[in-house]
Measured scan of single mutants.
Amino acid sequence: MTEYKLVVVGAGGVGKSALTIQLIQNHFVDEYDPTIEDSYRKQVVIDGETCLLDILDTAGQEEYSAMRDQYMRTGEGFLCVFAINNTKSFEDIHHYREQIKRVKDSEDVPMVLVGNKCDLPSRTVDTKQAQDLARSYGIPFIETSAKTRQGVDDAFYTLVREIRKHKEKMSKDGKKKKKKSKTKCVIM
């Protein structure tokens, strides 16, 4: 069974824990209790493949930012979460993405942009803004509501699919490099 290491990042209060708990335990946590770091595991079937999701729910508070490099190193894919009623959390996505790329030393890291709290009427981040940002990053965008469960499975499952595509691409690139290195030079 394939294991996928997913990391949920975003500013404090955007609903990272609520999304994760909704996926794992099928219930909505409405009281806000700032996370330092929590880890969850769940076995699911995605596109006919049974897999184990190892999900790291991270601290959004700035005082825990020193811990970010460590979990970013171990993560295979990242859910970059903002709240649709919090423009600052949307603007912060850029910083999370840049930090992930720096730590992973790669421009090509599996990510999904997630606009959470889409059940709320007080939207300050337009869907088109988020779609445009995701398009500019070359990553999928999904709106979710941890409260109603809308888009929750889709967000995590899409990230797994992005990781699969990335692994497939990397193995193809690896095979191309191996083929090239088999060419021999004969000096007579």
Rank of each mutant, 00 (worst) to 15 (best):
128 K>P: 10
129 Q>F: 02
142 I>G: 02
130 A>C: 15
128 K>I: 11
165 K>D: 06
173 D>C: 00
174 G>R: 03
183 T>Q: 13
159 L>N: 00
154 D>Y: 08
162 E>V: 04
130 A>I: 15
133 L>P: 02
186 V>M: 02
165 K>I: 04
132 D>R: 07
166 H>K: 06
177 K>V: 12
134 A>H: 01
130 A>P: 04
173 D>R: 03
165 K>L: 02
152 V>P: 04
128 K>G: 13
131 Q>L: 11
178 K>I: 11
133 L>K: 07
174 G>A: 11
127 T>D: 10
154 D>K: 11
155 A>L: 09
169 K>R: 13
168 E>I: 06
166 H>M: 14
153 D>M: 14
163 I>A: 01
176 K>Y: 07
134 A>R: 03
165 K>R: 06
159 L>E: 01
132 D>C: 06
125 V>L: 05
186 V>C: 06
142 I>C: 00
145 S>A: 01
162 E>M: 11
143 E>A: 04
158 T>M: 03
187 I>S: 15
135 R>I: 03
143 E>L: 03
159 L>C: 05
126 D>V: 08
167 K>A: 08
131 Q>P: 03
152 V>C: 11
129 Q>L: 07
157 Y>C: 13
126 D>A: 10
155 A>T: 04
186 V>L: 08
167 K>Y: 04
148 T>C: 09
152 V>L: 14
150 Q>S: 03
125 V>M: 02
125 V>R: 08
169 K>E: 14
127 T>A: 11
143 E>F: 00
135 R>N: 09
153 D>K: 14
157 Y>S: 14
127 T>M: 12
186 V>A: 14
154 D>G: 09
133 L>A: 10
165 K>M: 09
145 S>R: 02
157 Y>F: 11
154 D>P: 06
131 Q>E: 11
178 K>H: 05
132 D>V: 05
138 G>D: 12
144 T>N: 09
141 F>G: 03
152 V>A: 08
142 I>S: 01
157 Y>A: 14
169 K>M: 11
166 H>A: 05
139 I>V: 11
151 G>R: 02
138 G>S: 02
144 T>K: 00
172 K>Y: 06
134 A>G: 05
136 S>R: 09
145 S>L: 05
176 K>F: 08
131 Q>N: 08
126 D>H: 10
158 T>K: 04
167 K>L: 04
159 L>Q: 01
151 G>H: 03
185 C>A: 15
177 K>F: 02
160 V>M: 06
176 K>P: 10
178 K>C: 13
145 S>M: 03
146 A>C: 10
149 R>A: 13
128 K>R: 09
133 L>V: 07
170 M>T: 00
173 D>I: 00
181 S>K: 02
139 I>Q: 08
157 Y>I: 14
165 K>G: 05
176 K>D: 07
181 S>V: 02
137 Y>G: 05
154 D>F: 07
158 T>C: 09
173 D>W: 00
132 D>M: 08
156 F>M: 14
127 T>S: 13
188 M>A: 15
131 Q>G: 06
181 S>R: 02
182 K>G: 12
129 Q>A: 12
177 K>D: 15
162 E>F: 01
134 A>F: 07
130 A>D: 03
156 F>K: 06
132 D>L: 07
172 K>S: 08
185 C>V: 02
165 K>P: 01
157 Y>W: 14
169 K>A: 03
145 S>G: 04
129 Q>W: 10
186 V>G: 14
146 A>F: 13
157 Y>N: 13
137 Y>P: 01
167 K>M: 03
125 V>C: 12
129 Q>V: 10
134 A>D: 06
157 Y>T: 14
175 K>T: 07
126 D>Q: 07
181 S>A: 11
183 T>Y: 01
133 L>G: 05
153 D>H: 12
144 T>V: 03
131 Q>F: 03
160 V>Y: 09
132 D>K: 07
129 Q>G: 06
169 K>I: 13
161 R>A: 06
152 V>E: 04
130 A>S: 09
188 M>R: 13
160 V>W: 07
165 K>V: 04
162 E>S: 03
127 T>G: 11
188 M>N: 14
183 T>W: 01
151 G>K: 10
157 Y>G: 13
159 L>Y: 00
178 K>R: 04
186 V>Y: 01
167 K>V: 04
139 I>K: 05
128 K>L: 12
125 V>K: 03
152 V>Q: 05
157 Y>P: 06
133 L>E: 09
156 F>N: 01
150 Q>P: 03
160 V>I: 14
133 L>R: 06
146 A>I: 12
159 L>D: 04
186 V>R: 04
187 I>R: 15
142 I>R: 01
158 T>G: 06
137 Y>E: 10
158 T>F: 03
131 Q>R: 12
139 I>D: 06
158 T>L: 06
154 D>C: 11
170 M>S: 05
181 S>G: 10
135 R>M: 07
149 R>V: 12
133 L>W: 11
160 V>N: 05
170 M>G: 07
129 Q>T: 07
128 K>M: 10
157 Y>M: 14
151 G>N: 08
161 R>V: 01
135 R>V: 08
148 T>R: 06
128 K>E: 13
167 K>Q: 11
178 K>L: 06
172 K>T: 08
130 A>T: 07
177 K>L: 13
132 D>W: 03
138 G>V: 03
143 E>D: 13
166 H>G: 10
170 M>E: 04
160 V>S: 03
142 I>L: 10
177 K>G: 14
169 K>G: 07
126 D>S: 11
167 K>T: 06
141 F>D: 00
127 T>Y: 10
145 S>V: 07
159 L>P: 01
138 G>F: 00
152 V>S: 07
176 K>S: 07
151 G>L: 04
166 H>L: 10
159 L>F: 03
141 F>N: 00
150 Q>Y: 13
176 K>V: 00
181 S>P: 04
187 I>K: 15
170 M>C: 13
131 Q>V: 07
152 V>I: 13
136 S>K: 14
136 S>L: 08
165 K>Q: 03
138 G>A: 06
156 F>Q: 02
130 A>E: 07
175 K>G: 09
126 D>Y: 08
155 A>Q: 00
132 D>N: 09
129 Q>H: 13
160 V>T: 06
163 I>C: 03
140 P>I: 02
129 Q>S: 09
175 K>I: 03
